[in-house]
Amino acid sequence: MADRSDQWSDLKARMGAGAVMVLIGIIGIWLGGHVFHLLVALICGIMVWELVGMLRPGDGWLPLKLGGLTGIAVLISVYLPVGFALPILLAPALVGFGQLTQHRTIYLSFTAMILLAGYGLMMVRDDFGVGWLLWLVVVVVTTDVVGYFAGRAIGGPKFWPRVSPKKTWSGTAGGWVGAAVVGFLFSFNTGIGLELVGVSVALSMASQMGDMAESGMKRKMGVKDSSNLIPGHGGLMDRFDGMLGASMFLLVIGQFIGLPFGVS
């Protein structure tokens, strides 16, 4: 019984902090424009601050410098033509690569992903509207929430016990089912049809890949959470790792099947 209670010991804190994050996200997405751009830039900057703090602990100045540079680059890029935006977006990754003395490849990979994913989120909101961004966010959040409850309620074999001992195959598959339901519901409003179910499941898998990538990086660095900013959740990177994977996947597949899907 004690073990069962411990499974749900972090639920209250997670739910409270999660509700606040969802509310802020909904307001930012709904308002769009400068408000959403600022929100995305702030989130990206904080994630790089957390990343550098893990890679170079004890150095308060470098994480702030690279986090601030990232936020500024993301914010500037959205107001420029793509050709000028791309080098600005990648600049913080290269600057930090030159500043760090170790774990440079990890920094370069994750920072580039954070920058491009943030830019992609702003482009989806600006170019395709609230509906498609909500679809992306709801798929990722549903994958996380359904996976959390399914994993703890059903249990079973672990997905990657050496790196993420709490993740189970039941939770992983539960996330896919939740994403499929989201895709099915959104398919009625978009008029695209059931193809959106498959895309939503693939997006769910990409979000889980982002989660696994961050889990592997944290295990390598010997830390449990990216920071302690959010009660019950850790840091922003712990909450947005799935969004990073999903956003990057959407950027790639959007070039092949079109965005919005099914619209010429």
Rank of each mutant, 00 (worst) to 15 (best):
L134T: 03
L134Y: 03
L134C: 04
L134R: 01
L134G: 02
L134D: 05
L134A: 10
W135H: 12
W135Y: 08
L136R: 01
L136P: 04
L136A: 09
V137L: 13
V137G: 01
V138Q: 05
V138S: 05
V139N: 06
V139L: 12
V140K: 01
V140I: 10
V140Q: 00
V140Y: 01
V140R: 00
V141W: 12
V141D: 00
T142Y: 04
T143H: 04
T143M: 11
T143Q: 06
T143K: 06
T143D: 08
T143A: 15
T143N: 09
D144A: 04
D144S: 09
D144I: 12
D144Y: 07
D144T: 08
V145D: 04
V145I: 15
V145T: 15
V145C: 07
V146I: 15
V146C: 08
V146R: 05
V146F: 15
V146Y: 11
V146A: 14
G147I: 09
G147T: 07
G147F: 07
G147S: 09
Y148T: 10
F149W: 05
F149L: 08
F149N: 08
F149R: 01
A150P: 01
A150Y: 06
G151S: 02
G151R: 02
R152H: 08
R152D: 07
R152L: 07
R152K: 09
R152E: 11
R152N: 14
R152G: 07
A153L: 15
I154A: 08
I154V: 14
I154Q: 04
G155N: 04
G155L: 14
G155Q: 02
G156Y: 04
G156T: 08
G156L: 15
P157V: 06
P157F: 14
K158C: 13
F159S: 07
F159V: 12
F159P: 03
F159T: 02
W160D: 10
W160R: 02
P161W: 07
P161S: 06
R162L: 15
V163E: 09
V163N: 03
S164R: 00
S164V: 15
P165H: 00
K166F: 13
K166D: 08
K167Q: 04
K167S: 03
K167C: 09
T168P: 03
T168S: 09
T168L: 06
T168A: 10
T168E: 02
W169A: 13
W169S: 05
W169Q: 00
G171S: 02
G171H: 13
G171R: 03
T172P: 01
T172F: 15
T172Q: 01
T172W: 14
A173G: 04
A173D: 01
A173M: 11
A173N: 02
G174R: 00
G175C: 12
G175A: 11
G175L: 14
W176P: 12
W176N: 05
W176C: 14
W176I: 13
W176K: 06
W176Y: 12
W176V: 13
V177K: 01
G178Y: 06
G178I: 14
G178R: 04
G178M: 12
G178V: 14
A179W: 11
A179V: 13
A179C: 08
A179F: 15
A180W: 07
A180H: 11
V181K: 00
V182M: 05
V182W: 07
V182Y: 12
G183L: 12
G183S: 13
G183C: 15
G183H: 05
